[in-house]
């Protein structure tokens, strides 16, 4: 699949994802999924070289590894099997980006199941690592299909902890921090007095009304919502190297 000329929506998403990791310092950045991995590796390749990243499995690699490539070159810095990853999670030195089948105004996330626990209408992933991730370290989310089915007033079951529940826990939730929710339409954050979800920027070509129509609850929307920034030329060069097969365009086709 060949990329259209100029920055695409997927390129903008990749850069927005990369921006989530900008201020993390020397921690494990662990974006899960195709575009998250591309965006995370873009951050490491450009403005956040101190990030540690996995090869998708049990190694921490110091070079920028392309996605969707058979047997890529890996410069291995460390061994990080699952058991060691839990040490990283529980020490707090990690920023994960996960998916979300449902997410609510406080950032409570569900990818476990839809319906009741006793007999779900749709069994999804299960809790995976979401409860432990969200209570221990920074978390962001990636939603490639921004819609009212995903952005819901209330999730069916909470796998990732949101800000209202963290507030109820008090000091026990002192390591909880939701950074951003990046979607195919916009970037959202929780930089509001009560940590309700806020529209931070809209991707070029998307209006605020588009986002409102695709969201099943009321967002905090400032008077002036800026556009999500476009990729720099150097970033486009890196994207071509990180994602030579254009997998990002398959995940987020250009509108």
């Amino acid at each position: 699949m060949s990329a259209p000329a100029g920055p695409t929506r997927a390129d903008v998403c990749a850069v927005a994802i990369a921006e989530c990791f900008r201020d993390d310092g020397e921690i494990v950045a662990n974006p899960i999924g195709t575009l998250p991995m591309i965006g995370g590796r873009l951050a490491k390749a450009t403005f956040a070289p101190q990030l540690l990243m996995t090869d998708g499995e049990a190694l921490l690699v110091e070079n920028v590894v392309p996605v969707g490539v058979e047997r890529p070159e890996k410069v291995v810095g460390a061994w990080n099997p699952y058991r060691a990853m839990f040490d990283v999670v529980w020490s707090g030195r990690r920023h994960v980006m996960m998916g979300a089948s449902q997410i609510d105004p406080w950032g409570n996330q569900n990818f476990a199941f839809i319906g009741s626990h006793e007999r779900p209408r749709a069994q999804l992933l299960g809790m995976r690592g979401a409860p432990g991730n969200t209570i221990n370290h920074r978390t962001s989310y990636w939603v490639p299909n921004h819609s009212p089915r995903v952005f819901v007033p209330s999730v069916d079951v909470v796998s990732g902890v949101g800000y209202d529940r963290a507030a109820a826990l008090g000091d026990a939730a002192r390591f909880h921090e939701l950074v951003c929710v990046v979607t195919d339409l916009c970037v959202l954050d929780f930089r509001t007095p009560d940590h309700r979800m806020r529209l931070r920027s809209v991707h070029p070509g998307v209006s605020v009304d588009d986002v409102v129509a695709a969201t099943g609850f009321e967002l905090v929307i400032d008077a002036d919502v800026p556009p999500t920034r476009l990729p720099e030329p150097e970033e486009l060069d890196w994207l071509a190297r990180i994602d030579p097969n254009g997998l990002r365009h398959r995940e987020v086709p250009d509108p």
Partner: peptide
């Protein structure tokens, strides 16, 4: 949670009734 699962196995392996963790709070 994946990590709680590990702690449950570890507790059984060490013959203690439970292991404490922050994981699960709020979820």
């Amino acid at each position: 949670d994946e990590g709680m699962f590990l702690l449950g196995l570890q507790a059984a392996a060490w013959r203690v009734p439970f292991l404490p963790t922050r994981v699960g709070l709020g979820s």
